[in-house]
Amino acid sequence: MELPKLMTAQAAAKKLGIGPKLFKKEVLARRIRFISIGRRRKFIDEDIILYLNDQRERSKCRYTSGKTVHISHTTSVSKVKGISEVHL
């Protein structure tokens, strides 16, 4: 059995094409999985790919994905008056 190659946070962020601050934010939010080795966090390709797939699912446009039911109710009744009908 071959072990997966472990990456540092810096290498994983570079692979994703994002900065270290955003990468750390995603890790702390538990959106990017990691492996703890002592006090260090390491990352593997499989978890980076899972993160990308999750992002793809989340970023679907809400206007074009799936059916949406629009419901509107009009509760007011108004009548259009001509300018000659208005008393000032």
Rank of each mutant, 00 (worst) to 15 (best):
Met1Cys: 12
Glu2Asp: 14
Glu2His: 08
Glu2Phe: 07
Leu3Phe: 09
Leu3Ser: 10
Pro4Thr: 06
Pro4Trp: 06
Lys5Ser: 07
Met7Cys: 02
Met7Leu: 15
Met7Gln: 08
Thr8Ile: 04
Thr8Asn: 03
Thr8Arg: 05
Ala9Asp: 03
Ala9Lys: 04
Ala9Leu: 02
Ala11Gln: 08
Ala11Cys: 00
Ala11Gly: 00
Ala12Gly: 05
Ala12Leu: 04
Ala12Gln: 06
Ala13Glu: 03
Lys14Tyr: 04
Lys15Phe: 05
Lys15Ile: 06
Leu16Arg: 05
Leu16Asp: 03
Ile18Cys: 06
Ile18Glu: 09
Ile18Phe: 04
Ile18Pro: 06
Gly19Ser: 12
Gly19Ala: 05
Gly19Arg: 12
Gly19Thr: 03
Pro20Gly: 14
Pro20Thr: 15
Pro20Cys: 08
Phe23Lys: 07
Phe23Thr: 04
Lys24Trp: 01
Lys24Cys: 04
Lys24Phe: 01
Lys25Trp: 01
Lys25Asp: 14
Glu26Phe: 11
Glu26Trp: 09
Glu26Asn: 11
Val27Ala: 08
Leu28Trp: 01
Ala29Ser: 13
Arg30Ala: 14
Arg31Gly: 10
Ile32Ser: 08
Arg33Thr: 08
Arg33His: 13
Arg33Glu: 15
Phe34Gly: 09
Phe34Tyr: 15
Ile35Ser: 09
Ser36Gln: 13
Ile37Ser: 04
Gly38Trp: 06
Arg39Gly: 14
Arg40Asp: 02
Arg40Gln: 11
Arg41Asn: 14
Lys42Trp: 02
Lys42Gly: 02
Phe43Met: 03
Phe43Arg: 03
Phe43Gln: 03
Ile44Thr: 05
Ile44Ser: 00
Asp45Tyr: 01
Asp45Arg: 00
Glu46Val: 00
Glu46Asp: 06
Glu46Phe: 06
Asp47Gln: 02
Asp47His: 13
Ile48His: 01
Ile48Cys: 02
Ile48Glu: 03
Ile49Ser: 05
Ile49Trp: 00
Leu50Asn: 09
Leu52Tyr: 01
Asn53Tyr: 08
Asp54Phe: 08
Arg56Tyr: 10
Glu57His: 10
Glu57Tyr: 11
Glu57Arg: 12
Arg58Cys: 00
Arg58Gly: 01
Ser59Lys: 10
Ser59Gln: 14
Lys60Pro: 00
Lys60Asn: 02
Cys61His: 14
Arg62Pro: 04
Arg62Cys: 01
Thr64Arg: 11
Ser65Thr: 15
Ser65Ile: 00
Gly66Asp: 01
Lys67His: 10
Thr68Trp: 03
Val69Trp: 11
Val69Met: 09
Val69Gln: 13
His70Tyr: 08
His70Asp: 01
His70Pro: 00
Ile71Pro: 00
His73Phe: 13
Thr74Pro: 00
Thr74Met: 12
Thr74Asp: 14
Thr75Val: 03
Ser76Glu: 14
Val77Asn: 15
Val77Ser: 15
Val77His: 13
Val77Ala: 12
Val77Leu: 15
Val77Phe: 13
Ser78Arg: 11
Lys79His: 09
Lys81Ser: 06
Lys81Asn: 09
Gly82Val: 13
Gly82Phe: 09
Ile83Lys: 08
Ser84Thr: 10
Ser84Pro: 00
Ser84Val: 12
Glu85Ser: 11
Val86Ser: 04
Val86Leu: 13
His87Arg: 10
His87Asn: 10
Leu88Val: 07
